[in-house]
Computed example of a mutant assay.
Amino acid sequence: MGTILVSVIIPFFKYRKWLEEAIISALGQTHKNIEVIVVNDGSPENINDLKIKYLGRVHFYEKKNGGAASARNYGLSIAEGQYIAFLDSDDTFSLDKIERQLRYMLKTGVSWSQHSYYKRYDCGKKILVDTSRYSGDVYRSTFTSFRVQTSTVMVVREVLIRDRVRFPENFKNGQDGEFYKALAAKNPLGYVPNAYSDFRIRGTNVGFNPEVLLKNKSQIWEELEKTDHYPREVDVSIRLCHLLGHKAYCVHTYIVKNFAFLRPYRKILAFLLYLSPFISLKIVNKFDAKQ
């Protein structure tokens, strides 16, 4: 197992101090045969000191700003590992994460896997997010409620090449969800017991922005509209939920554009409009969990 190379891809745009924490957690792995790739996605921050400090241990690459999806795809294009692990620049791995996950994948033969993780707050508080329910055929779950976090995922690089799976760069946010859909369509997901990473929670996490969430639901609907033949997992209930999200996004866009006095309340409005698709998907997910 020690001869297997694992590439760790870290996209970076801001928060240099957190980037170094991520790098340290990757370099400190008990599985030593790793390739750490940092893709600087046009960051305004100077990280030349980190390049010097970790010279020969971390591969730094520069590109024009294009978003997290393009940065991860850039990393995938140059990675040489047989396995790929993703690490967001404000997250950290536990020191045995890659060893545990790689051992599990070799034993079970799965093409991709994930594990539980901790939400980590700046005050020091940590909350466990148990993702043990997500294993096997998770394709339908990727359309309803899929709480798998990017820094928990490891995948066989050859599978990404074979199935032509990349992060969709037309999605400004929620690219990881589309990446999971593409993988889950053909490959069962493995679950590695226990939690092996920390997911940093901060006020600017885009995943908690209702306007971003609404737009993402609209984009998913637009992608669904491009096909005439839906997989059996994507039934009427799921399509209806995302249609509600699309309509809510259209209403939000119209109101913000045409009613200037409501613009200061755009996030509150987005939150209220998002409740309909959010609750609908929760109901579908709850029903699925009972099956």
Rank of each mutant, 00 (worst) to 15 (best):
W221D: 07
G203I: 07
S280Y: 15
K32Q: 06
L55K: 07
S218K: 08
Y265W: 07
P168R: 12
R232H: 10
L272T: 07
T152C: 03
D288V: 03
L244T: 10
E62H: 12
F278C: 06
I34K: 04
P188L: 11
K97P: 01
A289R: 14
V159E: 13
G67A: 01
T253Y: 13
N33S: 03
K247N: 09
N258D: 01
P264G: 03
A85Y: 07
H59E: 08
Y265V: 00
D90A: 02
Q101F: 02
I84A: 04
Q175K: 03
F179Q: 07
Y61M: 11
H246T: 14
P193A: 08
R147A: 14
V192A: 00
V159W: 05
F60H: 15
R72Y: 14
I238N: 15
R263K: 09
C241F: 15
Y104L: 02
R232I: 07
C250I: 03
D49P: 03
V192Y: 01
L55T: 08
V159I: 04
E225T: 06
T92L: 01
I23T: 14
L213R: 13
V251G: 10
S141T: 00
F278W: 12
T92H: 08
V212C: 09
L243Y: 14
L240M: 05
A195N: 11
A289N: 08
I268L: 10
K290R: 14
A248F: 02
E158S: 12
A289C: 09
M105Q: 13
A184H: 03
K267F: 02
G190N: 07
I255Q: 05
G136P: 07
S111C: 08
T152D: 06
T142G: 00
R100I: 05
G203A: 13
F271T: 03
G203Y: 12
G66V: 09
Y191K: 06
I9E: 10
T152I: 00
L213Y: 06
N209E: 06
I98L: 01
N258F: 00
N194T: 11
G190F: 02
F93C: 05
L128P: 02
Y249K: 15
A270F: 04
N205S: 04
R263F: 00
D137N: 08
Y83N: 11
R72L: 02
R120D: 04
V138Q: 12
F208E: 14
L95P: 06
L214T: 08
P188V: 15
F146A: 04
N46R: 15
Y265H: 09
K290D: 13
K51S: 02
P188C: 14
V256Y: 09
N65Y: 12
H31S: 13
N170V: 03
Y254A: 09
V38A: 01
